[in-house]
Design a protein around this nucleic acid. Structure first.
Lengths: 342, 342
DNA sequence: CGTCCCCTGGATAGCGCTATCCTAAGCGCA
DNA sequence: TGCGCTTAGGATAGCGCTATCCAGGGGACG
């Protein structure tokens, strides 16, 4: 005898909405509405559906959901690195806000590479995320177009802009760089150097802040800048420190664009007998864990990245719900943390 | 006049397999097979389909795929923390192997919490991942059952076991702990202490290695252990160091379960004038970035976590393809890195 | 030279859920 | 009491893809 024409069903293990509806004695549609919290379902019915779902240990199938509604309950977060704890703190905060709201966080690491970001965007957009959180504004044209044409709600992280219609939560990296530099300039003869690695957008904005402060003080000298495209690390900080001192033995203070580098510099100073801060003052950026323990303790800028994550996620949540967002650009500020090194 | 009965289609933006098939002049089924690389499609046809897909910028809809095949092209990776760069290195390596193979990596952070792991598992399993990579063997019964009953291929990370049917890539944390302790015991009177925080499974295995080495040398003394359940950090390392020396001024060497702690201890030693290694030897674990730059440079154990990630991902790939896995338990070993601190 | 088998490509039927109609009550008001 | 209007709940129709079955054609073999 011939087998029935219907293909053998390739069902998954668990129970479906169908089952829940049957147990609750309602239609699948009503069960769907009840579980999604529509208020057009009578409270008593909704309760019955919820009980049935509980009893059957029902977990909705995200794929089916995404297919039917053309939207997945996920939020893509694009960060340039996971090795920098700044972004880990950010992700942690984002997750803390979004997970309870029922969103799954998809982490994308762009490795500071434009085309990698574009590729990630292309891949993730196929998942039809409900929202996106993206680090900074610098990207290639294709990526920009992908974001734009997707019409997915998007909040930008870490930096600020006044551009209309753009939502962002961050701080003025320029102002922060300026503040550090001014602090280092205080009381000296103006020989303050700037050392940077990675050279991403935010680093260059800090550099810009450094330049403004130096120019304002009338002591800007391009030779005082040391920029390396290499990946930032403690080790590199030590090397750049040595290089720098060889080139400019007379420097009074050094502003490192990141605490990694500054920490490496302090260790190298310790090793080579350069007295900090007496002989040379040092400042970093970000107030990474460990910077309060260095010898001497590192003067740096505390960037409220957890707050950035929290507020950006909250803003995105409103956008995804279609609510109005009162302020499109949130400046979380920064705090100069003066410790022993400067 | 009445509108047609069919609901207005809620289509996504991009082109579909249907479009590709039409352009290539084949059936959608053939297009599907061609794009998935089935060799039952004539090479010429396959090429035509690929060209059409390219021309239309076709990106398959993962939700539709997952729904139709009851399997998503994703791999879940569960790690206990993102603040520890060990796991970042691991993830990086995993991603490098899995992404080119077309798998999307879903990162789950359990925060060293059993019930959080269980919840993550429950959520992620609903996505019907093709595979899972899970850190360690210690978890609650519910989580264990979830993994088991899901029948999703799974490779365990970081630790080893001989249990039949269990796939794992890692190293013997006990042996590594033993090796460090033996090194610290060398030439002394046996007053070697052990300092740990976080107290997760791997930390406790290192503790076990410490105990074995101490017992073998006939100088095991429980009072020489200092265990703190607090989260591991540089700062905590300094505090525990101070605590320890107050309690045991006569200690000759300290084995810190993690480089974080050891780095904090070295800084505190520097600050309080304790001479390392002359007065007190120090060793850490994991060879984190920066440990080669400390003053003095830190003796530690290099754990090949990138290799763990790479090999585990490769093993999982074979399992997901249904191929046989020659060795179920891969020991990647470890390397004692002797530097100045011990 | 015919038969059978294999192999390629297409037709069919959903996967589990939700958007969108649509019907049947319930309700206020004249 | 009746009429229109607002609901609440259900019926219907896919979302875009793949598993499975099936048909037709070419080759191997008797």
């Amino acid at each position: 005898m011939k087998k029935p024409k219907t293909a053998t069903p390739r069902t998954r293990g668990g129970s479906t909405l169908q089952d829940v509806a049957a147990l609750a004695g309602v239609s699948p549609m009503t069960a769907s509405r009840a579980l999604r919290g529509f208020d057009s379902v009578a409270p008593e019915l909704a309760e019955r559906v919820r009980a049935a779902a509980e009893q059957l240990q029902y977990v909705p199938d995200p794929a089916a959901r995404a297919l039917a509604s053309a939207r997945s309950r996920s939020v893509v977060v694009l960060v340039p690195s996971l090795a920098n704890t700044v972004f880990i703190d950010l992700l942690e905060a984002v997750h803390e806000v979004l997970a309870p709201a029922g969103y799954q966080v998809l982490i994308g690491n762009t490795h500071y590479a434009r085309d990698e970001e574009e590729k990630l965007l292309r891949n993730y957009l196929a998942h039809r995320p409900s929202g996106m959180l993206i680090t900074g504004f610098e990207r290639n044209e294709a990526a920009r177009r992908l974001i734009e044409s997707s019409h997915v709600p998007c909040v930008y992280l870490m930096e600020l802009t006044d551009a209309p219609g753009v939502h962002c939560v961050g701080l003025s990296q320029v102002a922060a760089g300026e503040a550090v530099t001014r602090h280092l300039l205080g009381g000296g003869r103006g020989r303050v150097g700037f050392v940077a690695a990675q050279l991403d957008a935010r680093t260059m904005q800090r550099a810009e802040g450094y330049r403004r402060a130096m120019q304002a003080a009338g002591c800007y000298d391009p030779a005082l800048e040391l920029l390396s495209p290499a990946r930032s690390s403690v080790k590199l900080g030590g090397q750049l420190f040595t290089d720098y001192l060889r080139r400019h033995p007379d420097v009074e203070a050094l502003f490192f664009c990141n605490d990694d580098l500054a920490q490496g510099a302090l260790l190298e100073a310790l090793r080579t007998g350069v007295k900090v801060p007496e002989q040379l003052r040092v400042a970093g950026f970000n107030d990474l864990e460990g910077s309060e323990c260095t010898v001497p303790r590192l003067t740096t800028v505390r960037t409220p990245r957890a707050e950035i994550g929290r507020r950006a996620a909250a803003m995105l949540l409103r956008m995804m719900r279609g609510e109005a967002v009162p302020v499109a650009s949130v400046d979380v500020g920064f705090e100069l943390v003066c410790r022993e090194s400067a």
